[in-house]
């Protein structure tokens, strides 16, 4: 099983990294021919950085749109961030000090992450408008995250696999050796779901994560009168006439 999971991990990491970088490259290389920031918009680069920071850290626009979605979404995302950071302890030896420090917070974050996800799923099922726009993959995506969170929490609070063994497995992977993995079906499930997530990431709506940084309505400076903005394909149309 450990060999199988090791291979799955290598492959899914490869798909994740290469897929994501390729996508980011496509976004970066696709021109934005016109100035289309949603105004009022910042007139300086510093202002744009601030706007983007507010958007990414606080979900500013979503906050304006709908408080419930904002609260559940923000809870989910920032809990997940803490949970992911907490998991760095499986990849570092000795464990970095700040990673050790956030361990207890990360634990509770696992619970709030699950709560956020359940709330988002409930919303998707119960609110007529949201149900209308949901595809099967939208529901499955939430189920996938719920599976990851629930299996993780169960291992923390109910069935305790040998975490030292898990850590040596991952440190081994990082040094390109396959170490034994503790026998635990819950652990296998948890890891397989994470691998699945990594594979899906670069071809799904999870691309909203890199996408937001490339969104012209949010990342453009509002200075069209002060500075001429022109895409290469559009400049080709011009002659001196």
């Amino acid at each position: 099983m450990n060999t199988l999971l090791a291979i799955f991990f290598y492959l899914s990491t490869l798909v994740f990294v290469v897929g994501l970088l390729a996508r980011i490259r496509t976004y970066a290389n696709t021109p934005a021919p016109l100035k289309i920031p949603t105004t009022p918009a910042p007139t300086t680069t510093g202002g744009v950085v601030l706007r983007m920071t507010r958007e990414v850290v606080f979900f500013e626009s979503l906050f304006k749109a709908n408080l419930w979605t904002w609260a559940l979404g923000w809870l989910f995302h920032f809990s997940m961030l803490l949970v992911v950071l907490r998991h760095l302890r499986y990849f570092t030896d000795p464990v970095w000090e700040w990673v050790a420090l956030i361990q207890p917070f990360g634990m509770y974050a696992g619970i709030t992450m699950l709560l956020g996800l359940m709330g988002l799923l409930g919303r998707r099922l119960l609110v007529e408008r949201i149900r209308y726009i949901s595809t099967p993959s939208d529901h499955l995506m939430l189920v996938l995250f719920i599976g990851i969170a629930a299996s993780g929490l169960l291992m923390k609070f109910a069935v305790n696999p040998d975490v030292i063994g898990v850590k040596s497995f991952f440190l081994g992977l990082m040094h390109l050796t396959i170490q034994p993995l503790p026998t635990s079906y819950l652990l296998y499930a948890h890891l397989s779901l994470v691998c699945t997530l990594m594979v899906i990431f670069p071809v799904s709506k999870l691309l909203h994560a890199p996408g937001v940084f490339f969104s012209p309505t949010r990342n453009q400076t509002d200075n069209p009168r002060e500075k001429r903005h022109i895409a290469a394909w559009a400049a080709k149309m011009e002659s001196e006439k």
Binding site: S61, I133, K205, G211
Partner: peptide, 12 residues
């Protein structure tokens, strides 16, 4: 390009 990919159907 970005808008075709990025929507998560959040309903905002």
């Amino acid at each position: 390009k970005v808008y075709m990919d990025a929507c998560v159907h959040c309903g905002a």
